[in-house]
Computed example of a mutant assay.
Amino acid sequence: MMSLRDEIRYRILKHYTLSGFAEMIGMPYSTLQSVLNNIEGASVSNLKKIARGLNIPLDALISNDDINDNAHYSPILARAMHELSKEDLKKIEEITALYLKQKEGHDQ
């Protein structure tokens, strides 16, 4: 089993460079490196940014629970959460709800 540091690093590097991920979540690259080198000493604020960027719950990030569960991860959705306005996210949510409702009708 990988260490928590290695798990987080692996998750980031699956879809981004470390510097690209740091930029996406609004964290200096040097801060991301520091957090990865000392997760236990990281601030809650920085851990929240990383968890949001990875689209996983903060408690999963800290406890290493379900960090390998790809059902919770979408790099596109993670990027959307950081780059789109609240109005755009609301529209996406509405479109998704309509899509799921339509799909539900076809599956029956």
Rank of each mutant, 00 (worst) to 15 (best):
residue 46 N to T: 12
residue 69 D to S: 06
residue 32 L to D: 08
residue 82 H to S: 10
residue 15 H to W: 14
residue 77 L to Q: 11
residue 5 R to N: 11
residue 102 Q to W: 15
residue 49 K to D: 01
residue 14 K to E: 12
residue 102 Q to V: 03
residue 24 M to L: 07
residue 56 I to A: 02
residue 94 E to I: 04
residue 4 L to Y: 05
residue 36 L to E: 01
residue 50 I to N: 05
residue 81 M to P: 01
residue 10 Y to Q: 06
residue 37 N to K: 10
residue 60 A to D: 10
residue 7 E to K: 11
residue 79 R to L: 08
residue 40 E to S: 13
residue 51 A to V: 00
residue 26 G to P: 03
residue 5 R to M: 14
residue 60 A to F: 11
residue 104 E to S: 09
residue 31 T to D: 13
residue 52 R to Q: 08
residue 71 A to V: 03
residue 76 I to W: 00
residue 107 D to W: 15
residue 21 F to E: 01
residue 83 E to G: 03
residue 70 N to C: 02
residue 9 R to P: 01
residue 30 S to L: 06
residue 22 A to S: 08
residue 94 E to S: 11
residue 40 E to G: 15
residue 51 A to I: 00
residue 9 R to N: 10
residue 14 K to R: 13
residue 71 A to S: 12
residue 66 D to S: 10
residue 75 P to V: 04
residue 101 K to D: 11
residue 57 P to N: 14
residue 32 L to Y: 08
residue 44 V to H: 15
residue 17 T to L: 05
residue 8 I to Q: 03
residue 30 S to I: 05
residue 56 I to D: 01
residue 31 T to E: 14
residue 29 Y to E: 10
residue 64 N to Q: 08
residue 27 M to K: 01
residue 80 A to Q: 07
residue 57 P to R: 10
residue 49 K to M: 12
residue 46 N to P: 05
residue 19 S to Q: 14
residue 107 D to L: 15
residue 106 H to K: 10
residue 33 Q to L: 14
residue 99 Y to E: 09
residue 90 K to P: 00
residue 55 N to I: 00
residue 54 L to W: 07
residue 84 L to I: 06
residue 91 K to E: 09
residue 56 I to T: 01
residue 51 A to E: 03
residue 79 R to C: 08
residue 75 P to T: 07
residue 50 I to V: 09
